[in-house]
């Protein structure tokens, strides 16, 4: 567990204690509400993690290396954008992978586009996001992030080549 998780636990614990001291009834309401939104998430969550498990098994770092590798050019950039959009990878795997790709000769724009869509575009989350907001909203947020990744690729391309 990372430092940020520990901080969140401490923060939640402090606020919970303060809340109990100040108003037991309100705390009960809050906890109930938290549990309820968590349970509501579960039916989406389990299949989501099955899909993520399959993705992680199929889309290995080697595969990504082949797609984005040295002299992959424009095709590499475009595939990077799409692979990043549909895959899921925790940041502590993704960024070292980015470093490794750069070290083994992949160009900056490909790696940048892949990492940006990986973080900001979540096709696997689409069903959950539309359930909370709407399809239109989920589509729009992902579209903006995808567009941002394209801008990143262009600017990085200009600066790093």
């Amino acid at each position: 567990m990372g430092v940020e998780a520990i901080v969140i636990y401490i923060l939640a614990a402090i606020l919970f204690i303060v809340s109990v001291i100040k108003d037991k009834e309100k705390t009960k309401q809050g906890v109930k509400k938290g549990v309820r939104s968590f349970l509501k998430l579960m039916p989406v969550l389990v299949p989501l993690f099955v899909i993520i498990g399959v993705l992680l098994a199929v889309v290995t770092p080697e595969l990504i290396g082949r797609v984005l590798g040295e002299e992959s050019g424009l095709i590499g950039m475009i595939s990077g954008l799409f692979v990043g959009s549909v895959t899921f990878m925790p940041p502590f795997v993704a960024f070292p992978l980015g470093r490794e790709l750069l070290d083994s000769g992949a160009a900056h724009p490909q790696v940048a586009g892949f990492l940006v869509t990986l973080m900001s575009v979540g096709v696997v989350y689409f069903a959950a996001e539309s359930r909370y907001f709407s399809k239109k909203s989920a589509f729009y947020r992902n579209l903006i992030s995808f567009g941002g990744a394209m801008i990143v690729i262009m600017i990085v391309w200009v600066i790093y080549t």
Binding site: A12, A13, S19, G30, V31
Partner: peptide, 22 residues
């Protein structure tokens, strides 16, 4: 993934609930 999710998510939902109540 489910385990790492269950490790980090409970305090977040507690905070969401307290935010809603307070």
């Amino acid at each position: 993934q489910i385990i790492s999710m269950l490790l980090i998510v409970p305090p977040i939902f507690l905070l969401i609930g307290l935010f809603d109540a307070w």
